[in-house]
Each structure stands twice: as C-alpha cells, then as structure tokens.
Nucleic acid binder design. Structure first.
Lengths: 403, 403
DNA sequence: TTGACATTTTACGAAAGAGAAATATATCCT
DNA sequence: AGGATATATTTCTCTTTCGTAAAATGTCAA
C-alpha cells in the first residue's frame, strides 16, 4: 500500500507552539533572587527561601549556581545571635557591568556601574539647540562607548532614559516635542546591534523614579511619585514597587495638567468656559528662562539661577512661589487619586532645594484634606539621577542565562 | 551521665518556620486557572497551558482534579476549525455559591450567585438616617441570611463592599463620615464567625470597579477608573487588572479633590490664596438634595430627580451642568496622571444617563490635551453594581482546598 | 569545658511538573 | 472513501524541586 507516501509516519504531529516552561522559570527565579540580594543588606539562603516562597534546598541550588557563575560571593558572616550564623550573600562586583544613559533636550548623561551597581565611570555631553536626530543618536552611542572603555568586565545590558513618549516593548522613542524630528526612533534595535547586548528603553522621568526607588528617597517604599522637573515636566509613578505606565504609556504626563487660570473673573456661567493653563507653562525651566531673558538671548545657566534664588532675586523667587502655589494644588489632587507614601522632587529644578520644597510643602498642607498630605522631599542623587535609574532599569530587566 | 535529661535527643532541632510551598502553589495555580476560565469564553486545556505558562500535561492534571471536585464541567465543544476540537471547559454552577453585600449610608444590597457567577437571589434593605452601627451590622447579617436561604449548594465565601476607608488585610472598616459612630468595625471577623466561611472586605467603590471589570464596561481592560457617585464620591482604580488601594487605602478618595473656586477674582497674588471647593460639595447626591429641598424636609427620591431631569427641570439640569464642568476638568487631570483606557460612571448619579454623560464628555474633550482623552461611558449594571462586585471579590479571593 | 539550644545549610528520597512522543479527533483535499 | 494535515489531549519518562531529616556552626549557661 503506497508505502513511499507513508514515510514510516514517524514524524509525529507537533503541537503548534512548543512549551518551554522550566528553563524560563529558573532564569526568572534567579533574576528575582539577585534582585532580592540587591534590595536587602545581608541576605542568607534561608532568608531568601522565606521571602521567595521556595524551599531552602532549592535556594541552595540556585545560589550555588550563581556563585559558580560569578554573580554572587559568600561573605563570611560576622553575625552574633542565637543559632548557626548565616553565610551572607553579596553581589560580586566582578560579575559584569551595566550602562545607563539618560538624555533630554540639551544634555546627555551616561554612567557605567559594576554588577553591584557601584558607579565606575560617568560622562556628560551637551546637545545643541537644533541638533538633528541622527547626531543626537550618535552622541548617545559615543557616550556609551566612553563610559564603557577601559574595563574588561563583561557588559551585560544597557538602559536608556528617553524624554517624551516611548514604547517600552519595542524600544522605540515615539515623540518628544523639544527635539525637532524626534519621532519613531528605534533606539533599542540600533543600540543592541551596535553593542551586542540587550537594550531597555524607558521614559526618563520614570528612570529617575527608579533611581529613587533603589538608591534615593524611595528606598523601601511601594507607592510614591517622583516629579521630574527639567526642560519639560513629568511624573514617574511607582505602584507596588513597579513602574506604572498607563494604558498608552502616557501616565504621568502632567505637563498637560490643566490648572484653572487665576484671572477667570466670574467665568463660571454655562457656555463660557474659564481659561486654563497647562502646568508645564507655569512650572518648568523653560518658563523661568522665558521670564528672565529676552527671547533669543543667551540662556542663563542653571547655576546662575540657583545663585539668584539664594541671593533673593525677585523674579526667580516670584517664579518659585507661583510654581509652589500651582503645584501645591496639583499635588493635593494627585494625593487624592494615588495616595502615595511620598512625593520626591527631582530634576534640575530640584536644585533649588528648600527654596522650592518649603513653599511647596506649605501649599501642600494648606490645601490638604483632613486625612493629611504625603511627605515631600528633594532628591539627593544629583544630575546623574536619570542615568543611574537607566542603569538600574538595565539591571532589573536583565536575566542570567539558564544553565 | 544524667541520661534522663538527654531523652535520647531524638527530637531534632526544627527550623523556626516550616516551609510548605508546593501545596500552596498548587491551590494558587488552580484558583488562577478557575479565574481564567471565568474570564474567557470557551477555554480548553491547551489554551490554559499557553496563557498560564504551564505544560499541557500539568494543566490536564489540574483540570481533572477540578472536574472531579465539581468546579468545572467539560462541555462537548461544537467548534469547527482545523484539527481536533478542544473540549471546552465551563464553570459548574453547582460548584458552590458566593454572596456579595454592598451598602452605603442609606441602602443595603445583597446578592447570591452560583459558582458560575449567575445571580440567584437579590435583596434590598434601607438604613435609617441615624441608625446605630450595631443595627446596621445586624441588617447586613440579615441580608446575607435572606439571599442565602433555600439553596443547598455549599456557601464558599462572602464579599462585602463597605463605604469609607477600610483595612482589607484585617477586614476592618475604619471610618465613614456618613454613618455616625462607624469606626473600627471588625466586619470580617464578625461575619466569618457568623457564617463559617471566608469573608473579604473592600471599599464599595472599588467593588463597583470590580463589577465593571468582570461584567460591565471594563471587561478586558487593564487600566480604567470607575467613578462611584452616590451619597459620597469616590473613584475605583483598576491598574493592570488589579484594584489599586494606595499607600494608606485612601487612593481614589476624590471627594476631597480640591477644585479651585470659580469666584476667586484675581486672587493670584502671593499670600492671599484662592478659595477652593471640595469636589464632593459640587458633585454628589447630597449636594443636589440640599439644592432642591429645604433642609429637614423629606428627601426627594432618586426617581423624582431622574424624572425632573428628563422633563428639563432647571435646577437639576443646572446642577448636572455644574457637575459636568467641574468634573470635566478633574477627569482631564486624572487622565494626565493615570492615562486610563476608559472612565466609567457608576452609582446612583449615573442613573441620569446621557443627561450627565454627554455634558461630561463635552467638557472632557474641551479641556483635553493634544494626546486626547479617554472614552467615558455609563455603567449598565444598575443598582446592584456594588453587590455584584462584592460577590466577584469573594469569587476572586476564594481558593479551592488543596488535594 | 561541655552540652543544650537555635538557627542555617546540606543531603536525599519522594512528589510534582516539564517535555516529548503517542494518541485522539476533527477538517480538507484528492 | 481514504489519506494528509492540524490541533487537542493523554501517556510516560525524566528533571526539578519540595520537604524532611541530618549535619554544621555559632551562642549561652552550668
């Protein structure tokens, strides 16, 4: 019977999609384990087993593997308590390197960190007022190259903090109004081909929030808001320890936040709507510069503005007061919605320190409901905030290869 | 020596906390499996294996177990495609029952549903204007008893939608200003002892959001906001398919949302802060009733208000217009923060239907940023919305016992 | 110094679940 | 009708991970 067509029929029908479960799970578990070692100081196998809901023996196997792979080291634990002291696990700085890049309209920051996320090398570059997209991308590549040079530890991943709206899945920068022609830039694809490692893209304000979550004022918190105030204005929202992006990756785009204008004299009648102002037109570096200098003039550097505030300059202080007033209301509104544990001020404007934070805090409590208002603090991470967060993003997205 | 004290020393030292991982995991997986069967119409073993990242053989074991336990039934799948048709899995209505209760200042709603969440019995009761706490709790118990009677299917869990601030972990109602003396009511403890099943407590607006997520306008969405407009005002926030509660369980308490008042003539000068109104003082049923009747008078029933709106009553329409104006701004602000896919109107005020939704939509788009505004829709679940959500809460928190 | 104790880590038999192949059951195409 | 094809489910084997017990390793008290 037509044996040729049968071909022994040894080729079995295959289910359309294959199932590869365990390897992926193990890699995820080990990545999670490493993150927990990063989070806690002085973690032992048993402690990890408890928090990760795994059997101690299983954690032992994982840890042994990660130690032989060079990602973890076993610190001789000088702990003094009852019972056998735990062998403390620590990240091996030699396990590899990560790079974080962060940029906005006029500046690029890059940082390289070792496996324990200690900084190795920093780099700063500026962007011209009307620089083309390709030139900016080249500067990003150059910044990565620069902080990467002169270290033989393996590069594991790169994180990029991008201004404007992005698609984190595809790693594409979708739009940003302060850079001309900045649309659909396939950063992930381009950089991962250039450097041969995984590249993760995120909005720059959200990377700043990540930096605060891991190294700054947000350590140990589950829900907080990080306000990024630079050229533009945005909020990085951390919910349950995770970045919140919204339905359309536009969550936290509070630059468009409508504030009712203060000069709407009795315009509450039906039909005639009161005018309103966008929050970004009140509270951004752009606005301050517009107020200070004649248009087209050379921009006042940030340091000059900070000095002016310290010296009591009327224009600058008036600006800060207006910002504090508008923002005080907005923060209360955000509080009603999110009920965050804390609000963190970051970005260049946060450089004003108490000149900004104190009036903000006054307005925050003045408008607050009976249930109170969250604490408001200034970031202490400095200008590389976003780059540090971008590196942290790379650290947290990266997974060790399965055995 | 002293052999008596040794007691053979056969009692080995035990690790302080025992590790019971697998049984718990299996119960969680099976609960998750049931939820996925609830979510999707016509689910097969393979489909579940794919979406749950499990091997088909594993899912087979789980499903077999759930079938023998009486929670699932295997529908003969009349599907017409290529390949062997899947055996469709369906929830077994006989698997048990859940009860949801929901109340606010003046009303109690209760509903019993079968295992497939089809309604079995409803009950409505009213609460007097100054009823004591104990009496209200008794009415809750009575409502549960009433919808529970006359059915021999096993009662599996009870969900309770509570107004005001609650502690979902401990199942305690913390505070609610519209019921006198409503503070620290241990609802979970009391009801679970009374009825002998697990009891889950949640804010009533959030249970309304849950109802929308599972049965209403929020089906299939990951991020949306459900506005509950009844005696008070609140927002149920769904993030990534989960209830979001905030740091302090106060997320979505938008009754306190500060709206800048419309009559602040040029009060933008430093020092003199403009007055502002709480959103709840503009847009709640209380406010409308205050506007309509003289205080102390008998309250206008909701039906009369709805009829008045349909007949073009000036006071009611003016109220709705003011609500729409204030809320249009607030919704845009919420949109900037959350970037939800949709906004759902629920609660008694949603009964105004297009009389409320249309002006709201107009204001929403009028104030919207260039990136647009989310869709706004009215709930279609009716007055038992919150109770349905409370039952859904019970369904989703409940876990089958491990084998 | 010695032994009780508490806790962490390791060892190992047992169970759960993955993975691949076999089987079942449909359609479609000669 | 009969086989090729496609997909779902089941079977079976083998890996992974659990869970218990044992070993290790420190402190504390007599």
């Amino acid at each position: 019977m037509a044996a040729a067509t049968k071909t022994i029929s040894a080729r079995p029908a295959r289910t359309a999609r294959r199932f590869k479960i365990k390897r992926d799970t193990v890699a995820l578990q080990q990545a999670d384990l490493l993150l927990r070692v990063r989070a806690g100081d002085g973690t032992s196998r048993v402690e990890l087993a408890r928090t990760m809901n795994l059997a101690p023996s299983t954690v032992g196997i994982y840890v042994d593997h990660l130690v032989t792979e060079g990602f973890l080291t076993e610190g001789k634990g000088p702990t003094r308590e009852l019972g056998r002291p735990p062998t403390l696990l620590a990240l091996n700085p030699q396990g590899g390197r990560f790079i974080g890049v962060d940029f906005e309209a006029r500046n690029i920051m890059a940082i390289a960190v070792d496996f324990s996320q200690r900084p190795l090398k920093r780099f700063h570059d500026t962007i011209g007022a009307a620089e083309p997209v390709e030139s900016i991308v080249r500067k990003i590549e150059h910044a990565i190259q620069t902080v990467s040079a002169g270290d033989d530890r393996q590069l594991l991943a790169i994180g990029v903090g991008v201004p404007g709206v992005i698609d984190p899945e595809k790693g594409v920068a979708l739009s940003y109004k302060h850079i001309k022609g900045w649309e659909n830039v396939p950063l992930m694809h381009r950089l991962s081909h250039r450097f041969g490692v995984p590249v993760f893209v995120e909005n720059t304000v959200r990377t700043m929030a990540l930096a605060e979550l891991w190294f700054g004022q947000g350590r140990g918190l589950r829900n907080f808001i990080c306000l990024g105030m630079r050229s533009g204005l945005g909020a990085g929202i951390i919910i349950d320890g995770q970045i919140y992006r919204g339905a359309d990756n536009r969550a936290g785009e509070i630059g468009d936040w409508p504030c009712e204008a203060t000069n709407n004299h009795g315009a509450s009648k039906r039909g005639s709507r009161p005018a309103f102002t966008r929050l970004e037109d009140i509270a951004s570096l752009h606005t301050l510069r517009d107020r200070l200098g004649a248009p087209g003039q050379a921009e006042a550097p940030l340091e000059a503005l900070l000095r002016a505030a310290a010296e009591g300059d009327k224009v600058v202080l008036g600006f800060l007061d207006r910002v504090a007033h508008a923002f005080g209301l907005v923060l209360n509104q955000l509080n009603c919605a999110f009920n965050p544990e804390k609000i963190i001020l970051a970005g260049a404007l946060a450089g004003f320190g108490e000149h900004l934070r104190l009036p903000l805090e006054r307005n925050l409590t003045a408008f607050a409901p009976p249930s109170g208002a969250p604490a408001i603090v200034s970031s202490e991470l400095g200008a590389f905030n976003g780059a540090i967060g971008a590196a942290a993003l790379a650290v947290h997205q990266w997974k060790p290869v399965p055995p």
